[in-house]
Design a protein around this nucleic acid. Structure first.
Lengths: 235, 235
DNA sequence: ATTTAAAATTGATAAATATCACTTTTTCAA
DNA sequence: TTGAAAAAGTGATATTTATCAATTTTAAAT
């Protein structure tokens, strides 16, 4: 794998590095002091861009889209957070305003940790500090890959990349031994890829004709991941 | 200014938050223990993507492009670092491989700080720790704005944005009272905007016809920054 | 100042992507 | 189970962007 090649495959199936996993019980306890849990229905907004960042959120179960909205109301999905991931911490660490929107992609259980508890724990745990530095640096790497993808790859290639990434995320939803189905609206998929819904639909039809995937209602089942990888990887 | 509006102007003229400024003398001294300085000529490569991250770099004077290179050899500039900025620290904090290339855009003086000194100082300075957390979070915000720009804005709009940003960076080069000239090859400008050189040239011609800017050789002088802001801001 | 190689520019054309108007399918609540 | 409403899909066309093949201009070295 060429060092200069855009996106070696291991950079696609990025999962946010685990920030809280295996943190000492004392740290976790301090974080949890005022923790509350809430169930968000599909489409419910968790936080809004520009809102005061009252705290951070932990995805106990479900999937969350992080996105920006432009002047015309068009969404751009930046990232899909999965079960086990922490969101909203950038705001607390920089200017106390969320830099984007977050909304549930499916019914999700989300825990809320007030900013004070997060900051207090951060002040006492050098491990949490190091985890955050590492995660943020890793996110940077992932984001510049994404950026380059948007700047240089075609819609077809970007769709291939996102399908590969989404398949990884939906693995968790699939019962063991059962096929992995991606369940996402064409609008959200288009927003993730950065194109219009119609284009996504047309390319999915192409992929179907090439026996790369099949659909069941709005659900997508990848049949030939290697073909998809080749499309994503090459011009 | 709408909260949901893409890129309020203060997010464009982003300068990396100062990481080292006003750090206690003891910290700066520890960082400088094995510091070395080197002059890079225009085009010289400072580090390569994938290379072992032996340390971090401080731009004492000059301008540095950070970029990715795809399989076909096409460059994508991610960011232009200016005098006073630190680069290469993401690698040290995550996986010890530089995530992109860095090369001098003009003759530049660059200081090198070995990774051990950086890590040692980081271990002893909670201020440096906090600065890094804040900077990384801020970079995240800037990058998701960039990402959304690439995904949703036209070449014309992106060029307008980049000219505004570059003008800020070249302010430093201009003698007080003298006009601010952007001095960048059309290829680099195209790579920054994410398009072909020919398109950049054509759009610059348009901007000239609209009295937004003028050129002197390859140098660009912005005449009407407000028009540029309007183009960058609206569809 | 002159040469010359590199960079910039221009025009024509091809390819990719967006948009619009419409039909069909799916989902979900009554 | 069925009937809207929402979402998905399709085809035609417009617009944007990329590519190719030149020519002209600029900058650097002699």
């Amino acid at each position: 794998m060429s060092i200069t090649g855009l996106f070696p495959i291991d950079k696609w199936d990025f999962q946010s590095e685990s920030i809280l996993a295996d943190l000492p019980p004392a740290d976790l306890e301090m974080l949890s002091t005022h923790k509350t849990e809430q169930v968000y229905k599909k489409g419910d907004i968790i936080f809004r861009e520009g809102a005061y960042a009252a705290g951070i959120f932990f995805v106990v179960n479900g999937k969350v889209k992080k996105y920006k909205v432009n002047k015309e109301g068009k969404e751009q999905i930046i990232y899909v957070a999965n079960t086990g991931e922490l969101i909203g911490y950038h705001a607390i660490l920089s200017d106390d305003r969320y830099p984007d929107f977050a909304a549930a992609l499916e019914e999700s259980t989300i825990a809320f940790i007030p900013r004070e508890d997060f900051l207090k724990t951060l002040g006492q745990s050098s491990l949490l500090n190091n985890r955050l530095l590492k995660t943020l640096s890793h996110e940077f790497t992932v984001l510049i890959n994404s950026l380059t993808m948007f700047a240089q790859k075609s819609v077809r290639e970007r769709l291939a990349v996102q399908l590969i990434v989404l398949r990884e995320k939906y693995k968790m939803n699939a019962k063991p031994g059962m096929p992995i189905e991606i369940n996402m609206s064409r609008d959200d998929l288009a927003s993730l890829v950065g194109t219009a819904r119609e284009n996504v639909v047309r390319m999915l039809t192409e992929f179907k004709e090439e026996n790369i995937l099949q659909t069941r209602g709005r659900k997508i089942l990848i049949l030939d991941i290697n073909k998809l990888i080749r499309i994503a990887d090459y011009k």
